[in-house]
């Protein structure tokens, strides 16, 4: 089978085209939609003129092109290299944001390992903390919310697995994790509804009512609340606020998201 040809390094002069020429060729390639060629051009700038102002700019563009090509691991590597060398430069926000996006693109379904969701949150959190007034903060926060929804979704998925097998204790623990750690995700309504189901199936009616009451308080018009209400209704019970004011406390805790 063929193998790579040997290269005589003496002839391998450091071709030094002027950096701005290479950089502009890169930009032209992007416009022409030829991302892989653009990535090569930007890498060439970085190879021939390391640590120049041009190489800094091309590092960012190289991260961008690799991200667009779907070569996420390379994009993350180049992005992190930029952050090591120029953590305070003006494109740092964009580079860090690209690293976050590269992790975000690799988030897998909730039935699989969610380490990319965790990495997305870390990377995007850095964008929010270190560059609070950059224009990427809003989208970074949106991606954080998505990643947290994924983590909550994984807890729910395992919770449902146990609920289906009538292992109520295990399912309650998982749904509680969502209620306590991920209250501001899209899974919270279902988590509360599942808690109603789990406690109700075990016969601990009072907990079921409390959970339904909290669900009703915070999401009165949610379909999950309608189901829970109807479930308790069937058993001749309404989700009434039980004993004293601590429901208000629980509800308040949810609203303020503390």
């Amino acid at each position: 089978c063929q193998s790579d040809p040997d290269i005589d390094i003496t002839k391998l002069a450091a071709e030094t085209d002027p950096p701005e020429v290479l950089y502009n060729q890169g930009l032209a390639n992007i416009k022409a939609g030829n991302m892989s060629e653009a990535a090569r051009k930007f890498d060439a700038v970085d190879a021939q003129h390391p640590f120049s102002e041009w190489s800094r700019k091309s590092l960012v563009m190289s991260t961008f092109t690799k991200y667009r090509l779907g070569r996420y691991a390379d994009a993350i590597a180049t992005g992190n290299r930029y952050m090591n060398l120029y953590p305070k430069s003006e494109d740092a926000a964009y580079a860090q944001y690209l690293v976050g996006l590269s992790y975000w693109k690799q988030i897998s379904s909730v039935t699989q390992d969610q380490k990319n969701s965790v990495k997305t949150i870390e990377a995007m959190q850095r964008v929010v903390d270190e560059f609070p007034n950059s224009e990427y903060v809003d989208d970074a926060q949106a991606k954080i919310r998505f990643a947290r929804d994924q983590l909550a979704g994984k807890e729910m998925q395992v919770g449902r697995y146990y609920l289906e097998r009538k292992e109520y204790l295990a399912s309650i623990q998982r749904f509680r994790v969502v209620v306590e750690r991920y209250p501001n995700t899209n899974q919270i309504e279902e988590a509360l509804a599942r808690l109603v189901e789990a406690y109700y199936a075990m016969g601990v009616v009072q907990e079921a009512q409390t959970a339904a009451a909290v669900l009703g308080h915070n999401y009165p018009d949610s379909q999950w609340y309608a189901d829970s209400y109807q479930l308790l209704q069937k058993g001749g019970l309404e989700p009434r606020e039980n004993a004293g004011s601590w429901i208000a406390r629980a509800g308040k805790q949810l609203l303020t998201g503390s």
Binding site: S108, T111, Q112, D113, K115, Q157, V158, Y161
Partner: peptide, 11 residues
């Protein structure tokens, strides 16, 4: 905690 399953599903 199930970790590292990049393809096999959790259940």
């Amino acid at each position: 905690e199930v970790r590292g399953n990049t393809r096999t599903r959790d259940y």
